[in-house]
């Protein structure tokens, strides 16, 4: 059935869904959850953070975009470490059955460990090193360690999935190891690697909140935790929405890049 309304479905239906959730939220705050601020109050209290997004009034009192920016910097650093370490590890796992047998079990055990568990270990690990910001290094350690696995595993799968035909071309032409790697293996693995990169970025962003909450660093997660402790609940919701929105945008950006590399 094609009515004129169907054409606006893409806009209308999400708006309807959103309105339904707002209603549920509003009803909840006025019935069983007395401490939950209703949507109108949330917006009113969040205004200074949203309308002056770059303001800096204090270390943990900054505009929402400024907080987001701080969080993104930290994520970018941790994510970079994850990719720089994860990609070669994935390649080794994919290339060498011995390496794979040696390390796959330990990876499978470390992979499901929560960031909340890694962070204290990071603090302990780097506590005795002079001249570094221990909380920052511990946060980076946690982000990198948690977000690395999709990159590692997808790269390994990609390397194992390189068609024999392509490797035979390299063998027949007697390409050097380096040329085989750069001209055949890496291009053949790229689509898998980028799937890993996208999933890793999602996790890195997920971890940021935990890392900032535990370390008290300024950022969206740190702000959220501070406002909770200060009994200001309106901005918790603001932070959640911001975190969700940023995560969504990051994922979209990565899938655009991912598609760019799906030339195969």
């Amino acid at each position: 059935m094609k009515t004129p309304w169907n054409r606006f479905d893409f806009l209308l239906l999400p708006l309807l869904g959103g309105a339904f959730i707002l209603l549920l939220w509003h009803l909840s705050s006025h019935s069983w959850s007395g401490d939950l601020p209703d949507p109108a109050k949330t917006w009113h209290e969040s205004k200074p953070y949203v309308l002056e997004p770059w303001a800096k009034r204090g270390e943990l009192d900054q505009g929402i975009l400024r907080f987001t920016f701080l969080s993104l910097i930290l994520v970018a650093k941790g994510y970079a470490i994850a990719l720089i370490l994860g990609t070669p590890i994935g390649f080794f796992l994919g290339l060498s059955p011995t390496f794979n047998k040696a390390f796959d079990p330990i990876i499978q055990i470390l992979r499901p460990v929560s960031p909340l568990a890694w962070l204290p270990l990071g603090m302990v690990l780097f506590a005795k090193i002079k001249g570094i910001n221990v909380t920052e290094v511990a946060a980076l350690f946690t982000i990198a360690l948690c977000s690395m696995w999709p990159t590692v595993l997808n790269t390994a799968v990609g390397v194992r999935a390189i068609p024999t035909d392509y490797l035979n071309v390299a063998r027949v032409l007697k390409l050097s190891r380096w040329k085989t790697l750069t001209k055949v293996m890496i291009p053949a693995t790229l689509p898998y690697m980028f799937t890993g990169f996208r999933l890793s970025l999602g996790i890195a962003w997920l971890v940021i909140v935990a890392a900032e909450m535990l370390t008290g660093r300024p950022g969206v997660g740190g702000f959220l935790w501070q406002q909770y402790n200060a009994l200001v609940y309106e901005q918790i919701i603001l932070c959640i929405l911001t975190i969700g929105g940023v995560g969504f945008i990051l994922d979209r950006l990565m899938s655009v890049i991912e598609r760019r590399f799906k030339t195969i």
């Binding site: 035909d165 392509y166 027949v172 291009p187 053949a188 030339t263």
Partner: peptide
């Protein structure tokens, strides 16, 4: 020194 043509062309797609 041996040129090979396979059943599938096995060209590198990139």
């Amino acid at each position: 020194d041996r040129g090979i043509v396979f059943q599938s062309p096995s060209l590198l797609p990139w």
